[in-house]
Amino acid sequence: MPDRLRPVTVITGAAGGIGTALARLLAPAHDLILTGRDAARLDALCAEVGGRPLRLDLTRPETFAAAVEGLERVTNVVHNAGVVELGPVAEQGHEVWTRTLAVNTVAPAELTRHLLPLVRAERGTLVFVNSGAGLAAHAGWGSYAASKFALRALAEALRAEEAGRGVRVGSVYPGRTATPMQASVRAQEGGTYSPDAYIDPQSVAAAIRFMLDSPRDADITDLTVRPGPRP
């Protein structure tokens, strides 16, 4: 496929479970620009899938403009990166709230702002990887759920603003998925982590690819992915 016809897709959080699965799934047909906190894992993934690393500190959205300045094409953006720190509202200080909202909400908004002219030029798609916590908040999940509720609002407002320019905006809401983040969550909950009990990251990646590749006459705005029945 000629380079100009291949979609260029940015994936944040590519060094994690869903991001890595998605990069591997898209690699045969997409040119990939990948971000991730673990530099060694990100570099190894880029070498594996032929991707380009993009160094971003998601806690410092003010640095994004310089980081993306040289990009010439972007067709799709998948906002997949996220952090979660559990705890009751009465005990979590503003540092947790500030960090969580910066990575989970402010960073996607700011990165979208800088990449949107390129996405508009290609009539591309933005996908926000949200969470079940973006649909319902539970005890101990206040800061994370607040960031994901805000991410949902960001996606909905952006969809209404960009529809006339041919840009598609979707949100995917995975349930508990077998990723390093889920292992951290289970540790915070004081429980055991059993990957077989959760959604395979490849299944979530397949749902995201479906949103990216769906025909233009169908706009898939929200997609919920839940663990399937177990034998």
Rank of each mutant, 00 (worst) to 15 (best):
T125F: 03
T35R: 00
P61F: 12
A47G: 10
A133N: 14
V103R: 00
A107S: 15
R113P: 05
L26K: 08
G132Q: 12
P117Y: 04
F128S: 05
E95D: 15
T100M: 04
F64K: 11
D43A: 15
Q92L: 13
T112G: 14
V127C: 10
A81W: 01
R113D: 10
R60E: 07
G50H: 05
P88D: 15
A121K: 14
V127M: 10
E91I: 02
T35K: 02
N104I: 07
L111I: 12
P53L: 10
V103C: 07
T105F: 14
V96H: 00
V77I: 06
D43V: 12
A65P: 00
A27E: 10
L111H: 03
G50E: 01
G93L: 07
G124H: 12
E85G: 11
G132N: 06
G87P: 06
T100P: 04
A27M: 09
L86A: 12
H94Y: 04
W97F: 12
P108G: 09
A67G: 10
E85H: 14
V49H: 01
T100Y: 00
V78W: 05
F128C: 04
L111E: 06
V103S: 04
T59E: 14
G132K: 03
G51N: 09
A40D: 15
E72F: 00
W97M: 04
D57L: 01
E48P: 07
H114I: 02
V89W: 12
R99V: 05
L126I: 15
L42W: 08
N76I: 01
T75R: 11
A47M: 08
I33P: 06
G93C: 08
L34A: 05
N104R: 09
G82Y: 12
F64N: 08
